[in-house]
């Protein structure tokens, strides 16, 4: 436990607390084994099962190239987790030029809606802040992601 505290000392108490809790519950799970973790027997070097090795046949490239023939697979993978800064559009200021931010976003994470206002897809926005730099009327602000998340969770809490 002291070890976990040492290593996570730089994080806040609640993170340390959660880690300690997880470690303790994992420890409790082992209780029925009375703390004894045994190794499996060494695999005997006589009479073992022979591996079913095969000769890999050559197949045409249409089959043997690693391609997924389907669209939208990246939609399902939320890559926005990397963000440390979050771009936030002030719709009061946005003058619906519609194209600048949405064109410059290298991740295609800004979609322009029917009403001409852009919307950022935070599941995929990486927080590169190129949109912030490009928006002509400076309608996009950059907010530290952790603050944005704290705000969100306190709103949810209300």
């Amino acid at each position: 436990m002291g070890w976990i505290r040492d290593e996570l000392a730089h994080l806040n108490e609640s993170v340390v607390g959660k880690n300690l809790e997880m470690a303790l519950s994992a420890y409790d799970l082992m209780a029925e084994h009375a703390g004894i973790v045994s190794l499996t027997d060494d695999l005997s070097a006589v009479g073992w099962q022979h591996p079913d090795w095969i000769e890999l046949p050559l197949e045409e490239a249409g089959i043997s190239a690693p391609t997924i023939h389907a669209a939208d697979t990246s939609e399902q993978l939320k890559t926005g987790l990397w963000r440390t800064m979050r771009p936030v559009i002030d719709y009061e200021r946005c003058n619906r030029c519609w194209w600048v931010c949405s064109t410059f976003c290298p991740d295609g994470a800004i979609k322009v809606q029917e009403d001409g206002y852009p919307r950022i897809d935070y599941d995929h926005c990486k927080g590169c802040l190129i949109c912030v730099a490009q928006c002509p009327p400076h309608a996009i602000a950059a907010i530290p992601e952790y603050l944005a998340q704290e705000e969100e969770s306190s709103e949810e809490g209300v």
Partner: peptide, 27 residues
């Protein structure tokens, strides 16, 4: 030279390829 690659592994890969094939047909 011998590849350490088993029948079972090839079967697993075949499953993935089958999924890719179905998707291709859907397209």
């Amino acid at each position: 030279p011998r590849l350490l690659y088993t029948e079972t592994e090839l079967r697993e890969t075949r499953k993935l390829q089958a999924i890719a094939q179905v998707e291709r047909r859907q397209l």
